[in-house]
Amino acid sequence: MPNAESRLDVQERRRYAVHALARTMATLTSKIPQSSRPAIISLIIGAIQRLLLILQDYSLLCVDTVAKAFTPPLYFADTLQQMDLIGVGSLPMILLTGFFIGSVMVLNTASQFQRFGAVSLTGEVVALGLVRELGPVIAGLLVTGRNGSAIASELGSMVVTEQVDAMRALGTDPVRKLVVPRVLATLIVLPLLTAIADLIGLFGAFIVSRFTLAQTASQFWNQAIQSLALGDLIQGTIKPVIFALIISTIGCFYGLRTHGGTQGVGRSTISAVVVASITVIVVDVFLSKLLLFYFAS
């Protein structure tokens, strides 16, 4: 009779291709005999194994979350509560930051444009920069700092105080009750926050160009709006959707794998913020390349 561990593995492997792949790679690296590798190689192999295992667990959580987001029961009230927490709660921060980012963009570009006598281009440059790039990234990073960390630390404390186990003991699936509402809420709210950041950023830019470049409202807004093609708007909407998935799933992932008491909660929170921020920025590069390729104006 196979033992419990291998029986479980078979079940899981059948269900998730990702799991199988990561597991096989981890086993393969461990097949190299211990004696024939220098210490540094062992260290590297160990690190790669750990990374693969983390990636495997993360993909499993994502697959699980998607599966559970499309099947009942869906915790509607919890999702609304999270939307309020993430969306309404982040609004002041997004408004302030968006406004000043827009303003500073004009301040930085104004002198160059004045040199080339192309002041009228200000609106266009600011609009493109904000909608395509800065709006999504700034909103993404701000929400990572505020809500990615909150998600990780809240779930983390629930894990270390056995509240997550208590939930399972009471017959409720923590992925459905805790993860899905947070992912859905972020998914709905971040694109909206990004749009608000874009708008308020443009407004900040307008105020500055009104007073430093003496541009009229019609000059600025005509330029800004006409420069935006459909592709730019699509790019500006797809990015926050992807960022929302990254931020919320990474926050939940690190929160749920917390161990080691309150110190562990701190560690999880740090990991969630660092990993999510870096992932947002790296993914942004590839996403920009991809989307510019498809929607080149």
Binding site: A4, R7, Q11, M158, T161, E162, Q163, D165, A166, M167, R168, A169, L170, G171, T172, D173
Partner: peptide, 25 residues
């Protein structure tokens, strides 16, 4: 050991669990 987590969630209605520090939400 053989049960899937979905079935376990349902099965646990037969079990009350009082955790070490209470584990109240």
């Amino acid at each position: 050991v053989d049960m899937k987590e979905v079935d376990l969630l349902d099965f646990r209605r037969h079990i009350g669990f009082v955790f070490q520090e209470g584990a109240l939400f």
